[in-house]
């Protein structure tokens, strides 16, 4: 088993379980985790990282829903396949545009934090404008 260290931070708009999902996927992209590896049990995560086991299990269920991991009854949670790459390859248009935009923003005298905040505001605004406002009914992670 690979020793995964999850770290939950207080982040606006990112639920704790989503952070575990993200961190697991990041570990897969960077090669810390490979297909076939067993993820730590909720108990192990709780003990080493002080993460609520319900959060860990919710994240694992989300990862299973996405097909990234596989729950094998009585054995453990295993990485089934690498997550869909959603970061476009270096050299793609999106990549180039973002680099260009970032450079312009920083040149204009904005601090790094301002840039980050601007990006997050844009993301949040896009999310709300797209009708994500009423996620209430959807109840993410509700009974399947």
């Amino acid at each position: 088993m690979v020793c995964m260290k999850y770290r939950i931070e207080r982040r606006r708009g990112v639920a704790a379980y989503q952070q575990i999902v993200e961190q697991t996927k990041r570990a897969l992209r960077t090669g810390t985790l490979r297909v076939g590896d067993r993820l730590p049990t909720a108990r192990e995560v709780a003990e080493t990282c002080a993460v609520n086991p319900n959060t860990t299990l919710k994240a694992y269920r989300e990862l299973e829903r996405e097909g990234v991991v596989e729950l094998r009854q009585g054995i453990g949670t295993f990485v089934a396949r690498a997550p869909e790459p959603f970061v476009p390859d270096a050299g793609s248009t999106l990549h180039a545009e973002l680099y260009e935009w970032t450079e312009r923003a920083l040149r204009s005298g904005m601090a790094e934090d301002d840039v980050r905040e601007l990006l997050e505001t844009a993301l949040a605004r896009y999310g709300d404008a797209a009708g994500d406002v009423l996620v209430t009914e959807e109840r993410k992670g509700g009974p399947a």
Binding site: L39, P40, T41, A42, R43, E44, P53, T56, L57, Y60, R61, L71, R72, Q73, G74, I75, G76, T77
Partner: peptide, 11 residues
């Protein structure tokens, strides 16, 4: 049940 917890319990 999640396999992870079941295993932990069994272990």
């Amino acid at each position: 049940m999640s396999a992870t917890t079941q295993e932990a319990r069994r272990g």
